[in-house]
Design a protein around this nucleic acid. Structure first.
Length: 160
DNA sequence: GCCAACGTTGGC
DNA sequence: GCCAACGTTGGC
């Protein structure tokens, strides 16, 4: 698979919003807690340092894309899998052979206008977007270059 | 709060 | 390996 240059990650804004990322030290955070193997593979093997990331608010009113981020680290083991106090603790994970991996994500900028899910759905250019496919629940998905450009256009940003 | 669509678990 | 039961996601 040729490496996609763009991704979409979901976050519940009540838990961690794009504004929270902008306000974080260095405007960055560990994208921890991913506990789905397909999403893990995208994080560990699919992403490259500097790839563009659409930051999507799920379980929100309304749901939609709030901002742009970038992949800000190489992959490394998600430390929460080894922390019994963490909700993401995985008793089967072994430090010598970690199960779960992550990347750091760094905020770039908010979209000029939030792009609600309904707007994404109304764009024929986004009809193939993985996020919009029936039954799609992955929290990390690849985004094609045309999809990326279209979301930026809808969000009122020039292509970058 | 409802529920469709998935993923995971565990008995067998 | 099958599959029913259960848990989770996430839009509405």
């Amino acid at each position: 698979m040729p490496a996609p240059r763009h991704w979409l990650v979901k976050s519940e804004p009540d838990f961690f919003s794009f504004a929270d990322l902008m306000a974080a030290p260095g405007r960055r955070t560990m994208w921890d807690g991913v506990r789905n193997h397909q999403a893990k593979l995208f994080l560990r093997d699919g992403m490259s340092l500097g790839d563009g990331v659409l930051f999507y608010h799920s379980n929100a009113e309304p749901p939609g894309v709030a901002g742009l981020a970038r992949v800000a680290s190489e992959t490394y083991a998600d430390p929460t899998q080894f922390d019994p106090a963490s909700p993401y603790f995985d008793p089967k994970a072994k430090p010598e052979a970690p199960t779960w991996f992550l990347r750091d994500i760094e905020a770039v900028e908010a979209l000029a206008t939030f792009v609600p899910l309904a707007t994404l759905k109304s764009s024929t250019k986004l009809s193939g977007m993985l996020l919009l496919q029936k039954g799609s629940r992955l929290s990390v998905t690849p985004v094609t270059a045309p999809e990326w450009r279209e979301v930026l256009r809808l969000g009122g940003l020039k292509a970058r």
